[in-house]
């Protein structure tokens, strides 16, 4: 075996320690969620899996309102994804490809909205939605979540489009493509993975959001809003299973978008 200097050993020890800090809580909630109900109430709890059981998860899934709220959460997240991409991606393209008066102003305005408590705006929005008859609907939550996601979508798509050299589009234009054709045949295929990553992140953003969803709905809750509203009256199995269920998409989606981590966050903040 190759000899490692002390500094390398310390580095790996610190790395593992930090890893443990992040992973241990995830392991524990998974452990709790897949234990039978009596183990959930047990104390002291086993720290290694003793018996695998779906009892706790099924109890959560079968609780009243959970499945409906899951369905609603998915619809809201999909709506948010579609609307924010449809509205935001063209703006991202414009920022990436054109020089025009007002470009920097627009960009700065978008960046500065990120330094802004957007979800708080759900309170005045709720009042307006009541007047418009939109209150307590999936669409109202999706509209709010789109506002939350839009600045992010614009900046990310802009950085994704900017990563394709403009030369490529121009070359296509000299070879017989119209402007739209050049976008369709060259830029779109090349940016598809990046745009997909942005879309997935928008989905997660909406799936996770709880404050605005809880304000804007009453009976038609999304999953986080539903869990939040009943949380403090719920038994432990419901809480543990719910926590784990909310967490799962995060773990899966991060797998898909990990290559785009810096496209999504690193560059956006500049």
């Amino acid at each position: 075996m190759k000899h490692w200097p002390w500094s390398r050993i310390v580095l790996h020890a610190v790395a593992l320690l930090l890893l443990l800090w992040v992973v241990l809580p995830i392991y524990l909630i998974a452990l709790a969620a897949f234990s039978p109900r009596d183990v959930v109430y047990q104390y002291p709890k086993p720290l290694v899996p003793t018996q695998f059981s779906l009892e706790t998860m099924l109890f959560f899934m079968r609780s009243s309102g959970v499945l409906d709220s899951v369905r609603r959460s998915v619809i809201v997240a999909l709506l948010t994804l579609v609307v924010s991409m449809a509205v935001g991606a063209p703006a991202g393209y414009a920022l990436a490809r054109y020089i025009f008066p007002g470009r920097d102003t627009f960009r700065i305005a978008i960046v500065s909205t990120r330094a802004f408590p957007i979800v708080i705006l759900s309170i005045p929005l709720a009042v307006s939605f009541i007047n418009l008859g939109l209150y307590d609907s999936t669409i109202s939550v999706a509209l709010m979540h789109t506002a939350l996601a839009l600045p992010f979508t614009i900046l990310v798509t802009s950085s994704v489009f900017a990563s394709v050299p403009v030369d490529l589009e121009e070359a296509a234009m000299t070879l017989g493509c119209s402007r739209l054709g050049a976008f369709w045949r060259i830029s779109l295929p090349l940016t598809l993975p990046g745009l997909a990553a942005a879309a997935i992140f928008t989905f997660v953003l909406s799936w996770n959001e709880v404050f605005a969803a809880a304000i804007l709905t009453l009976r038609n809750r999304t999953l986080p809003a539903h869990v939040l509203s009943v949380l403090n009256e719920s038994p432990l199995p419901f809480r543990f299973a719910g926590g784990f269920f909310l967490l799962v998409p995060a773990l899966i989606f991060m797998l898909f978008i990990r290559r785009y981590l810096f496209n999504l966050w690193g560059r956006v903040v500049r």
Binding site: P165, D167, L168, E170, A171, A172, M173, T174, L175, G176, C177, S178, R179, I186, P189, L190
Partner: peptide
Amino acid sequence: PPRRRGIAMVFQSYAVFPHMTVFDNIAF
């Protein structure tokens, strides 16, 4: 527009489409 001018162009960066084979590039 460029496509109606009857020109072809070679770019400084080459602008070879990265998602196409050499054949598809030339055939574009």
